[in-house]
């Protein structure tokens, strides 16, 4: 395991994406509303779009057609290309997945040391 000091704590905000590089690998960071910092692989697992151009948002729910609810603000990352949604809580897509196309974000362990954000790879 390697530890990489990638940025300052104040560089990572709720609702925003911060890209860092570990070696040549891009990693994007965002802060969940709960305060936790998430670090995920910087390329979309679908077709490789640079997730730093994506958006952090909430997401919708509905028990009946045309009656949308909205929640999980700050916990959803959407790919800048196709809009695929992933939860920053667990890296899983918001859609039920199929065996043929397993899509999930790669989550990295994050530690805060002083005002430094450390990503463990």
């Amino acid at each position: 395991m390697a530890r990489h000091s990638v940025c300052k704590v104040h560089d990572v905000a709720v609702g925003a994406l911060t890209e860092v590089k570990v070696g040549r690998s891009p990693i994007v960071l965002s802060r969940l509303p709960s305060g936790e910092i998430r670090a995920v692989g910087g390329r979309c697992p679908h077709q490789g779009a640079a997730l730093r151009h994506g958006c952090v948002s909430g997401t919708t729910g509905a028990d009946r057609p045309n009656e949308l609810t909205y929640g999980c603000e700050g916990e959803i990352l959407r790919c800048p290309w196709h809009g695929f949604e992933f939860s920053l809580r667990d890296g899983l897509p918001t859609t039920p997945d199929s065996e043929g196309l397993a899509l999930r974000l790669r989550l990295y362990e994050v530690e805060v040391e002083g005002d430094e954000v450390v990503v463990v790879t």
């Binding site: 679908h46 997401t59 919708t60 729910g61 509905a62 028990d63 009946r64 057609p65 009656e67 949308l68 959407r78 196709h82 809009g83 695929f84 949604e85 897509p93 918001t94 859609t95 039920p96 997945d97 199929s98 899509l103």
Partner: peptide, 14 residues
């Protein structure tokens, strides 16, 4: 569905 679920979240399965 994967790219547009946000509009039709009442769909619960692929």
């Amino acid at each position: 569905y994967r790219q547009g679920r946000i509009e039709v979240p009442w769909i619960k399965k692929l």
